[in-house]
Design a protein around this nucleic acid. Structure first.
Length: 511
RNA sequence: GGUCCGUUCGUCUAGGGGUUAGGACACCAGAUUUUCAUUCUGGUAACACGGGUUCGAUUCCCGUACGGACUACCA
């Protein structure tokens, strides 16, 4: 069996899309399961689209997600360099090999000439004009031009590209691991540019050459590459590398949540969820896009969610750690159909992972928020608060956002609760309760509860009728975590103070 | 337009010639919680359509429709 060597090969043209993270994940899972290698290669052959910071962003994103690179950009390895722009000198040799074998040719057509050809064909009724086995005979290239002229042109450093000479009639077959046999007729493929006039290879050439040189065993990439996969198969054949051609797996696309179409940043912005793993500031526009990390998603939750977008284990288990995913993963169980992106499910995963953490860890999140607010709090108290709040939190920030009342006394009170629950009985109970509490040295939840029962019984008022009013006096709201625990956390003095404030400031609703 | 890929509850999906078509998210209801949330229980909800093949098709085949990707000296 061939060693499993997979690669994730992004272009540094901006932030890494969440779909890219999923592609990287599937590659990683296969590599780890088979004891193989995960390689990171930077495909920056289009220098006009290079965005500063994008490479670092990709590295940081993968690291955060827990996807470790064994070899490649930023890590090193036996096939350096792993940035295609730095491999520039290597590609010409391979293009030349194809020319020598008669599978590629020089083309000298200018942009205007190409445009003119397309216009002419369109006028003749061809919907999508191609540079192919037929049209190439009418263009300026080494197929049509006399050898002398080609040599002269090359010697005078006339700009040229190298194109693949795609045969007119040939059935190209490709066995995709997800889709099975895919057949394409060569007449559908145009004479793709292999080498650009700036001396850089195009994706097609660089990709195939590098996958070969790096001994890649499996190419797992997005479905958008499926139409050009037969072209890559042709390339392997012409190079004579068919026996080491990687196995292909084209992943279903991530679709927008509503309607149809590829998930885009626009959709994410509109619906208010992130699409990038980390915050990303566009260096050109200065625009800031929120990341999953900064939005409060835990990497384990994101990974679990992403793994299930297009794959399933065939069992009812849904919560998978990275190690469990590595064990359970299989390319065969990846679906064929595009997958709509449902952020609600991601939130559910986040909640599950959040709850599985200890109170101490969760308390840490609260401490982080408190630090920003310049509020001091002990670790023990933070952990205690986290314990009380954990069932109601989806994101780490929730501990602070839903627990502010523990640190700030209410200055206003929920009107709806006031009008419904704040009555003479409530005032009586709270007044008596407040006096009892003020006699205590500290509040303990179960004692506070017993004390309240005692007060309501002596006043002959049902506890249930006034509990919400008591809550209102302490927190300002009608709902929240266990009130007795809240009082225990806030402490005696503060509770008394808050009750006094409430008694003074809330007007009794006249029935 | 052409080529390729796809189509099971609203969403992610399991399944597969004979099933009460299963699970999860979301939603709804009941119970618990003297509140809300949690938790538990239950519920609504799907095989795109039309032809075949077959004793029998949601499952296999062919069409149709719908959707998507691709169609650059971008990846």
């Amino acid at each position: 069996m061939r060693e499993v060597r997979v690669r994730f090969a992004p272009s540094p043209t901006g932030a890494l899309h969440i779909g890219g993270v999923r592609t990287a994940l599937y590659n990683y899972l296969l590599a780890r399961q088979k004891g193989g290698k995960m390689i990171l290669r930077i495909e920056d052959t289009d220098q006009t689209r290079f965005v500063p910071g994008a490479e670092e962003y990709i590295q940081k994103s993968l690291a955060w997600a827990g996807i470790k690179i064994d070899e490649g950009f930023g890590v090193g390895g036996p096939h350096e360099p792993y940035r295609q722009s730095e491999r520039k000198p290597m590609y010409m040799k391979y293009a030349q090999q194809l020319i020598d074998a008669g599978h590629a040719y020089y083309a000298f057509d200018t942009e205007q000439e190409l445009e003119a050809m397309r216009e002419r064909l369109k006028a003749a009724g061809v919907p999508s004009p191609q540079y192919n086995s037929i049209t190439r005979t009418q263009m300026r290239n080494s197929v049509t031009l006399p050898e002398d002229e080609v040599k002269a042109l090359l010697a005078s450093s006339t700009p040229y590209v190298i194109r693949l000479k795609v045969p007119r009639k040939e059935e190209i077959r490709l066995n995709d691991m997800i889709r099975g046999w895919v057949m394409v007729h060569s007449a559908q493929i145009d004479d793709k540019v292999l080498m650009k006039s700036d001396g850089m290879p195009t994706y097609h050439l660089a990709n195939v050459v590098d996958d070969y040189l790096m001994n890649i065993s499996h190419v797992i990439r997005g479905e958008e590459w499926l139409p050009s996969a037969p072209l890559h198969v042709l390339l392997y054949k012409y190079f004579g590398w068919e026996d080491v051609m990687p196995q292909f797996a084209h992943l279903p696309l991530l679709l927008k949540p509503t309607g149809d179409g590829k998930l885009s940043k626009r959709d994410a912005d509109q619906m208010g969820f992130p699409i990038f793993p980390l915050d990303w500031k566009d260096p050109q526009t200065g625009e800031l896009a929120k990341g999953f990390k900064e939005s409060g998603y835990l990497p384990e939750a994101l990974i679990n969610f992403l793994a299930f977008l297009g794959w399933n284990p065939g069992t009812t288990q849904e919560i998978f750690s990275m190690d469990e995913l590595i064990k359970a993963f299989s390319v065969e169980r990846i679906g064929k159909a595009g997958t709509k992106f449902d952020i609600l499910k991601a939130q559910w995963f986040n909640q599950q992972y959040l709850r599985s953490k200890s109170d101490e860890e969760l308390g840490g999140y609260l401490l982080e928020s408190l630090e920003k607010e310049n509020i001091s709090c002990t670790k023990e108290k933070a952990a205690k608060i986290a314990g009380v709040m954990k069932e109601r939190a989806t994101f780490p920030k929730d501990f602070w956002e839903q627990g502010k009342f523990l640190f700030y006394a209410p200055t206003t009170f929920d009107d709806a609760v006031v009008s419904k629950k704040w009555n003479d009985d409530a005032v009586k109970v709270i007044t008596a309760y407040r006096n009892e509490i003020s006699k205590l040295s500290t509040i303990e939840a179960s004692a506070a509860k017993a004390l309240l029962e005692q007060v309501t019984t002596s006043l002959n008022i049902g506890t249930g009728k006034i509990l919400q009013a008591v809550r209102l006096s302490v927190t300002g709201a009608g709902a929240g975590p266990d009130l007795m625990m809240i009082m225990e956390i806030i402490g005696k003095d503060e509770v008394v103070k808050r009750m006094d404030f409430a008694l003074q400031n809330i007007k009794v609703k006249v029935a």
